[in-house]
């Protein structure tokens, strides 16, 4: 039995300690907003926050998050930054297929928590680990600038 704190609530799951956090969230805790994309921390679809920092849940064993705070897309709207990012995403109609967008939003929120007014170079650095096959990148950039109140290039 593994216990962890997800979105402020203590949860437990009867899984092997090596099970990736991603699958514990999706299958044991029935929180499917966090997505499986590659299983190797290469695409960012599974991004969640661990103590406020973005991590790839597909490559994070659940044992590594014991006693730490996990935040997922389902609760990101509870923070002011999360709300701003979601609002900008909707205003600009960022998603297309939408599959990668949970991870994109989690990465964007983490960026804005770190740097309130990111430059384009900051956005490149923070977001280029998150793949979008629909190519929503220009709108993601615009939405981050909008959420930050900065004017993009």
């Amino acid at each position: 039995m593994v216990t962890l704190t997800v979105n402020g609530t203590a949860r437990s799951a009867d899984v092997d300690a090596a099970t990736p956090l991603l699958w514990v969230l999706r299958e044991n805790l029935q929180m499917t907003g966090t997505k499986f994309g590659c299983g190797m921390a290469l695409c960012g679809a599974c991004t969640v926050h661990l103590d406020g920092k973005p991590v790839r849940s597909c490559s994070t064993p659940v044992s590594a998050v014991a006693g730490r705070k996990v935040t997922t897309i389902e609760a990101i709207g509870q923070s002011a930054t999360g709300r701003k990012v979601q609002a900008a995403w909707k205003d600009i109609d960022v998603p297309q297929c939408g599959y990668c967008q949970s991870g994109q939003i989690m990465a964007a929120v983490a960026l804005l928590e770190e740097k309130g007014k990111p430059t384009d170079a900051d956005i490149d650095a923070a977001m280029s680990g998150n793949i979008c096959r629909c190519g929503t990148y220009p709108r993601i950039r615009a939405a981050i600038h909008q959420a930050a109140g900065t004017k993009g290039a």
Partner: peptide, 19 residues
């Protein structure tokens, strides 16, 4: 017109096959 699927694709509630 705003896309109907956008809100659910911004909070993890959109249902894909894998979900």
């Amino acid at each position: 017109v705003p896309r109907f699927d956008t809100p659910a694709k911004c909070d993890g509630s959109a249902e894909f096959g894998i979900d």
